[in-house]
Nucleic acid binder design. Structure first.
Lengths: 341, 341
DNA sequence: ATGCGTTGCACAATCGTTTGCGGTTGACAA
DNA sequence: TTGTCAACCGCAAACGATTGTGCAACGCAT
């Protein structure tokens, strides 16, 4: 029950394998009549080229590595959809390489990509990866790579990220504009660059509005459970915020029910806003306005960029840093204009 | 900047490539001294075998295809984690092959697996795949395959699924036991086998308790938005249910906020329960008791089975159908014992 | 010294394609 | 008739590894 190879087809037709190979790719050297005949027989014999052989010969695998810190239900599924959308029609396949938030595993994954000459790599770093380590990893890689979302500072590689600072700033300003004056912030892992940038945006918005930045009004939560805790700490009778910025879906899913549980009324007592991929905010009542963090869009962008890197001369390309902008989606119900008037 | 091949190493040592190959895998034919020397030089020269060449030679790719209907935020991320957990240590890599709920794309994906002789395939079918089509697809595949979660009836292939009927039945019984008498059900796509089985379990529980099955008390929703609609239809003043079974996380995220929006009080007016992977139920307030649909567990099981299929003689294995059982996780707050007493 | 069995390595074929080059036809112009 | 040039196709060498077989050298018993 062996697969039919190009030789089988050649033998059947009494021609040379090379002829079959050329005929199938419409090489002009092969006569038109024979070309058609070859194709006919090939499909009849259900011939399909052996990918491993092809890859060995052309030194290219048409596989793209996706190195992500962890395969969570947030963000990455959308990213993958976006990536697939552009990769699939071009014949590339995606290989999952989750790092489980471990830098060593991440290094392993990258090594895998290098050793197996994948066509390229899409990477989002773990929260524990040191900038210097990330730099050297990618430098040693010597293959097309684009970093997305969880990037590191000053990386001389192509990247696609959200305009984090701006998004956070806009979100915070939105709270301010709807009358909030004591604004709290719930952030993710503090070592993440995106956390730092979103925090910066948050602070900027406050200071632009001449509101004080109060250290005790912000909290960092590594996951939903921690967000729950943070909320319980924040929502103390006297000092509770009248507006809350949450930097991600995961934070929301931990914090939102916690807010409700403390008896705080949304939006009467406290307005909320978040940065989100878009699904989660609609799954709460009242619904949550958000700055759209378009996962699929980022995935598409990153994949596009990677493809063009693969197709181009690696030596001449200079790194491009793309910022995807976030648009405000107002769901109205978690914010009340009247507050504070 | 070429990679160092086995020949380079061989030349450097003045030996034959075959010797290097054997030395590196501790073949007894090679003298101990030389063996060590080869290894030393190999690592020194940063030699790493070319995977494509190896694969071509051994006719095995160490790649496993993951064919899923769609990469959603529900369930599949956990499944992938489970799969990775067992695949990665064994040197297999996962290739993503989302079908986007399209049977033709699914067929393409499966064809891809066949043509590129992946080591094996893990598949969950789209909601539109006809049982006969699925059967013929897998039959033509001629390679190790295990079906998980979204299976089809009477498939002569290995499968790992949740004990859907039993889980739904237990969930419903739980509602009954806590005093509910007018129990509604929110289900997913009706063409899915798992939907049918969960519906069956739901009905069984009702009839065991001598409660009538009312057609108008159940609804099918393809996604969260539809679930939202269904709830609005169901929660009419007079005929509203006093207990609601929801068959999945996605349904919950659409339905739960909808219930709240209708003003219905949980659990005072209506108890709820669902089948879930575990994260979502904790992200609502009040929290939702659920039957645990262990995605990671199913992923691990499926991967294990696939590995053993790959390692075993394909002709002698007889299909095994594994049922993962669901355990009840009581979160207490969405159900009140006192109701109806 | 002869025969035999190990040990330790080299040779060459092989996996299935692709591709540079060379060679055979035939037409057609000189 | 000879030379030229296309048009077509075959030959064989790659790509980088693995593996069955062959064979020299050596030890040891006879």
């Amino acid at each position: 029950m062996k697969r039919t190879t190009i030789k089988d087809v050649a033998n059947r037709l009494g021609v040379n394998p090379s002829t079959v190979s050329r005929a199938l790719k419409d090489h002009p050297d092969i006569g038109l009549a024979l070309r058609e005949e070859v194709k006919r027989v090939a499909t009849e014999m259900r011939y399909t080229p052996n990918r491993m052989a092809v890859q060995l010969r052309q030194r290219q695998s048409h596989l793209v590595g996706l190195v992500i810190p962890e395969i969570t239900m947030f963000f990455y599924p959308s990213v993958i959809r976006g990536i697939e959308e552009v990769l699939e029609p071009r014949g590339y396949q995606l290989v999952m390489l989750p790092s489980n938030e471990s830098p060593s595993r991440e290094a392993q994954n990258l090594k895998f990509c290098g050793e197996n000459q994948l066509a390229g790599v899409l990477i989002s770093f773990t929260r524990h990866t040191l900038p210097s380590d990330g730099l050297s990893l990618l430098t040693n890689l010597e293959m097309p790579v684009v970093v997305f979302d969880k990037s590191l500072p000053d990386l001389p590689f192509d990247s696609v990220i959200l305009e984090d600072e701006e998004a956070a700033s806009r979100a915070t300003r939105f709270l301010i504009d709807t009358g909030c004056r004591r604004i709290g912030g719930l952030f993710g892992s503090p070592n993440l660059l995106i956390t730092q940038k979103r925090l910066q945006g948050f602070r900027n918005a406050l200071s632009s509005a001449n509101l004080p930045f109060v250290e005790s009004m912000i909290r960092f939560a590594g996951n939903a459970d921690e967000a729950d805790l943070c909320v319980r700490e924040m929502m103390v009778p006297e000092d509770a915020p009248d507006g809350l910025f949450m930097m991600s879906d995961e934070i929301v899913m931990g914090a939102y029910p916690a807010i409700l549980r403390t008896g705080v009324n949304i939006p009467a007592d406290c307005s909320v806003i978040c940065i989100s991929d878009g699904f989660v905010p609609g799954c709460y009542y009242p619904r949550i306005s958000y700055l759209h963090h378009d996962g699929a869009g980022i995935g598409r962008e990153a994949a596009h960029r990677l493809i063009s890197l693969i197709d181009s001369d690696p030596s001449v390309s200079i790194p491009e840093h793309r910022m995807v902008n976030a648009v405000l989606i107002e769901l109205e119900s978690t914010n009340s204009i009247e507050k504070g008037e």
